[in-house]
Amino acid sequence: MMTETPTAFELTFQPNVELISIVRRFLSDFYERMIEDHDTVSRIALATHELLENAVKYASDGATFLSVKFEPGEASSTVSIRLMNRAKPEHIAAVATIFGEMSLHDDPFGHYQIAMARSAKRKVGSGLGLVRVRAEGEMTMSHTIEDDRVTILAQTTVTARRRG
């Protein structure tokens, strides 16, 4: 069944990419107790993994803050994944570029296919992480930049279970 109470999970993360998969597995277990739809849990896990990797790779001081919130509503519930880290100017610019592209492509899957074609020829990095979160994770994405702090918010809605 789906929980009817708000639930939150927060983690301050030091750079260790090996731990990201452990966090993904933990979150999957955590949310499988609250959300009955395994596909939704899988989308949340994928998005969290990609956002964490992105943040850990580019955190300039090594610290990443992760927050995952589940907010139940009458008709639908919202899952919010928020990642915050400090980053160097070139990485902040790269994030801004990706979000700029997203704003130009209303169709997340179409944008994903374009990014894949470009990624195929890249020698460094994939350029796919955030685009994949939006397309495969079916997340609404936004970001804010304050000085050297980058915050990325990914949200998705989960249909509430009918009562009675």
């Binding site: 998969s21 195929a120 020829k121 890249r122 994939s126 796919l128 992480g129 994949r132």
Partner: peptide, 16 residues
């Protein structure tokens, strides 16, 4: 169990 976007990109390159 899972494949991240970096590994996914390896497949994209191969397919290309």
């Amino acid at each position: 169990e899972f494949m991240n976007s970096s590994c996914f990109k390896s497949f994209v390159t191969w397919i290309s």
